[in-house]
């Protein structure tokens, strides 16, 4: 049984303006999936749908086989949720926020809580409103993982954090993976975090799933070819080559993304244009993201 399953999710905020138009994918136990997409692509909407905070207008979402709107308590108790715009009760002290969560989650692990308190060196007596952004997020993370959730939903968890705090986040997530086998669905604009953490990426674009692939297969199955500018090298000509899925005109060369091995891609370019001095480059996820999502707009 999937830990989380999105099936043909539709959601609009205003009539006629759909954020999600039929998104489907699922996570198996222990999977770590990075959710990618431009700002406003609907990542947060999807996370909020998974938490049962909002309802899809069409389609079914289930966590552990339960509907998050039907069994909100059962679902939320088994999920850890951290989001960029999450606001903790700011009138409470850190100590009290932790006590609050401890009382709400039956599976709370005090040893883990103490461990994380020590690691983050949180000022337990400080009010939430006096904490820095990074500290507040650390409190949120502590509260999200100390009940050893079966699923972590991290919505842009490192947004606005400094590299040290981001690393802390990453390491805590990895600790959860190692110790509990937690399934993680996270969205992030830090592609290096995605590369480190995710085993699989799902890219949401224009309301649908553009890519859903193992991260290594994604990179090995795609190649970026830089074709120097020449009169015959046009966008359309490149796109007409078999396997070419995106072209961007840059100052140094035309950047073409191919859905095939680099060698094949170079061969095809050579066949189309002859010897052009086309080069292949290994694609980091960040570039892939820009080439695919940025290139189509």
């Amino acid at each position: 049984m999937s830990i989380i399953e999105f099936n043909n999710i539709h959601r609009a905020y205003k009539r006629g303006i759909d954020v999600l138009r039929g998104v489907s994918f699922s996570l198996e136990k222990g999977e770590v999936v990075g959710l990618l997409g431009k700002n406003g692509a609907g990542k947060t909407t999807l996370m909020r749908i998974a938490m049962g905070m909002i309802e899809p207008q069409k389609g079914i979402v289930s966590l552990f086989g339960l509907g998050p709107r039907d069994e909100p308590i059962q679902v939320k108790r088994r999920v850890g949720y951290v989001s960029e715009d999450q606001i903790l009760p700011e009138f409470l002290r850190v100590r009290e926020v932790i006590q609050l969560h401890r009382g709400l989650f039956p599976t709370w692990d005090e040893a883990l809580e103490h461990d994380l308190c020590k690691r983050f060196s949180l000022p337990l007596n400080a009010k939430i409103r006096s904490l820095s952004k990074g500290q507040a997020r650390q409190v949120a993370l502590l509260c999200a993982v100390s009940h050893r959730p079966e699923l972590l939903l991290l919505d842009e968890p490192a947004g606005g954090l400094d590299p040290a705090a981001r690393r802390e986040f990453l390491e805590t997530s990895i600790q959860m993976l190692n110790e509990t086998g937690t399934t993680i669905l996270f969205s992030s604009h830090y592609m290096s975090d995605v590369e480190r953490l995710a085993g699989r990426v799902v890219m949401i674009h224009e309301g649908g799933v553009l890519i859903d692939s193992d991260i290594d297969l994604l990179r090995e199955g795609h190649s970026l070819v830089l074709v120097p500018h020449a009169p015959k090298v046009t966008r359309d000509a490149l796109l007409s080559i078999e396997g070419c899925i995106g072209v961007r005109d840059r100052s140094d060369a035309m950047h073409a993304v191919f859905r095939c091995q680099p060698r094949d891609a170079l061969d095809r370019v050579a066949r189309q244009f002859g010897s052009t001095g086309a080069r292949h480059r290994d694609v980091a996820l960040e570039e892939m993201f820009i080439e695919l999502v940025g290139g189509q707009s």
Partner: peptide, 9 residues
């Protein structure tokens, strides 16, 4: 993680 080579590789 920024290099184009997959991490496992």
């Amino acid at each position: 993680p920024h290099s184009g080579v997959p991490v496992y590789r």
